[in-house]
Nucleic acid binder design. Structure first.
Lengths: 207, 207
DNA sequence: TAGATTGTTAATCGATTAACAATC
DNA sequence: TAGATTGTTAATCGATTAACAATC
């Protein structure tokens, strides 16, 4: 299967939520141009994305929704469970902890880490919080393979190194730091300030 | 000036923070390949980005840091102030409110909105929180042109419509909803779940 | 000058778009 | 069949990479 870019994954995720609504309304088939208008993309884009995941439509009838959902879920959702850790239970970390549960399929928040003793040992939104000292031990024990990094910038690289050493393979980085990781590790940067600066830039340009 | 993509803006932002550290260490000039290694990109990439913002280097000496900072800031930071509103002071909204102040240049958080009466009227991290009923009035009065959307998915489109009607021109969308907006409005989607699903997908693919 | 840098140019790669033929 | 859809193909566009000439 070909590589999927962020945009494709993002669109597939969007299609899926639309399809589930359509299915709830007892529709069996859906035309690509209907799906396209609901997801705000072009019909051709929809068809290409769906071909990519291996789903075929029928001319004059469209795509079978149940079939489509199955195909998209196969690509989007892990066949096996991924186990996640959140490192850094500050304001942002807590917000993510409260937001995620129930919104993911086959992605399990298995642990949270923080240095603050007032947080460790507690259960936060159903997730056990451990001391950062125990990172190595817990990451291995819980077979965690993806981490969400919401620590202060100053310690971001150190924490990353420890995570990588203990077998982490994917990283969602909320810090503004350019993390240095081995090639095999996938890092996704998500900086709110950068996004806002980009929006401000585009707003000025379009004016 | 040509269009700048998200990646360019992201890199420029990264260069800037590195340059400011270098300047603090009293360095006057910096070679592109040094900057490149610090930002984890190729030297050619750095040079292209810097040419794009109109900065010129000197062979055998490199780029003058002060000059460079000026050029990047000119592109990255607004010449005039942008005023932001945050709509939806839930867990995520609060986290963003606490995170942003002091991290932005020429971007001012002018107001927050929520329906919950226990939050309205208060000052949250230095930002006044208003009732959602007063959205139209306040957005106009405060000349807000960019909004951060952290409301529940169910009301996202409604709130967006009201924001657009009152002159918002850029939108950072944290909801999973595909917002329908006029062409002139720039929407940036930032969905944590989608990012995690992408990471999980890439982790599986690389395995 | 020699060496290491810079800016420039053409080539590559990926994703998107547009035009077309095939299908029910 | 006719009409509206689908899959396929070639063309376009943008960003990145690689190779080169110019500069201090």
């Amino acid at each position: 299967m070909a590589k999927k870019t962020h945009m494709v994954i993002c669109r597939l995720s969007r299609y899926l939520s639309i399809l589930q609504i359509q299915r709830a309304e007892d529709k069996k088939y859906l035309f690509s141009h209907i799906l396209a208008s609901l997801a705000h993309v072009t019909p051709a884009q929809v068809r290409r994305d769906l071909m990519m995941v291996g789903a075929n439509g029928i001319p004059a009838r469209g795509y079978e929704i149940a079939n489509l959902v199955r195909h998209i879920e196969k690509v989007l959702y892990a066949s096996h469970e991924h186990r996640l850790a959140l490192v850094g239970v500050g304001n942002l970390g807590r917000a993510i902890l409260s937001y995620l549960p129930g919104r993911m399929t086959n992605l399990v928040l298995a642990a949270a880490f923080d240095t603050n003793p007032s947080k460790t040992g507690k259960l936060l939104h159903g997730v056990r919080c451990f001391s950062l000292d125990r990172l190595d031990e817990i990451v291995k024990r819980e077979a965690i393979d993806i981490a969400i990094l919401t620590v202060p910038a100053a310690v971001a690289q150190d924490v990353t190194d420890r995570l990588v050493q203990n077998g982490i393979r994917g990283l969602l980085n909320f810090t503004a730091v350019a993390l240095r990781v081995p090639r095999k590790i996938h890092v996704e940067d998500l900086d709110v300030v950068v996004s806002l600066e980009k929006i401000a830039y585009l707003v000025r340009e379009k004016a």
